[in-house]
Design a protein around this nucleic acid. Structure first.
Lengths: 140, 140
DNA sequence: GTAACTGCAAAATATTTGCATCCTT
DNA sequence: AAGGATGCAAATATTTTGCAGTTAC
């Protein structure tokens, strides 16, 4: 699955805008979410390329949502060298946001004979925000 | 996200064939995998409808793969009433199979303020089969 | 100036919907 | 016979690729 090397060197305004959207959001965003949050219109394809670039750089996590879409969330703990996914993503059934649980994660038991290199847990339930608030929030 | 009620009542040969493929496989299968394993050709759309029917019945788990595809695996522990996803899926980087880890799962720590209703962990590594064998297995 | 980046068009892939026909009950 | 199930065509959705024009360095 060796991909063509993505050149992601130049710090363009477009990339800054996408990064800005990701930085402001506490939850993971789909491509669609990101397009909506952009103040200026950026071409769909460009957004995809930028996001893939960020993922290759280890700046952004790519999360496969249960709805079949891909979600992207800023990776606050990992570097390009040490990009681990050993953390949980939490999908809130109330506000439909996907947040990264930053605390390290342990899954038990690790099955016998299996060599686990990364753990990515997907929790579903209600998030702290929705548990404390009774307000309707459609999407963050 | 209220879906139209899928009528999944009749026990047709077509459904039996799809179920048969799922029963024989220890790993989760994509729609494409399933089509390939079918002895007789069944229309693409029909397979999708059957799979969605099985999911609604709680017979099959729907797993969002990292590749953007959806994987389906027979649900051996759940009933329609008690369909829980508190188990892990394991993706083997060697044979690319996705297997269900049937043992109950605990994720620690559960973040404060969060109300977790289901846990679905996605582990990556090498499976017991690939650890014991050095053979090249492309796909099961 | 040049290589990287962007936008438009189009393709590739995954999944769903509509509808006429077929088959299970 | 009736309503669910199937197959074909076509639509929708998501993501990628090609290429020409633009821009950062």
């Amino acid at each position: 699955m060796l991909k063509k090397v993505v050149q992601n060197r130049r710090n363009t305004k477009t990339k800054q805008m996408v990064m800005n959207v990701l930085e402001k959001s506490l939850s993971a965003l789909s491509h669609e979410d990101i397009e909506q949050k952009l103040t200026e219109k950026i071409d769909r394809v460009t957004v995809y390329r930028i996001l893939n670039g960020f993922c290759n750089d280890g700046k952004v996590h790519k999360i496969a949502g249960d709805d079949g879409k891909t979600y992207y969330s800023l990776c606050r703990h990992c570097t390009a060298e040490q990009h681990n996914d050993n953390h949980a993503h939490f999908l809130c059934t109330e506000c439909h946001s996907i947040v990264c649980i930053e605390e390290p994660l342990a899954v038990q038991p690790v099955p016998k004979g299996y060599n686990v290199s990364s753990i990515s847990a997907f929790l579903t339930g209600t998030c702290s925000k929705c548990n404390s608030t009774v307000l309707d929030q459609d999407r963050i």
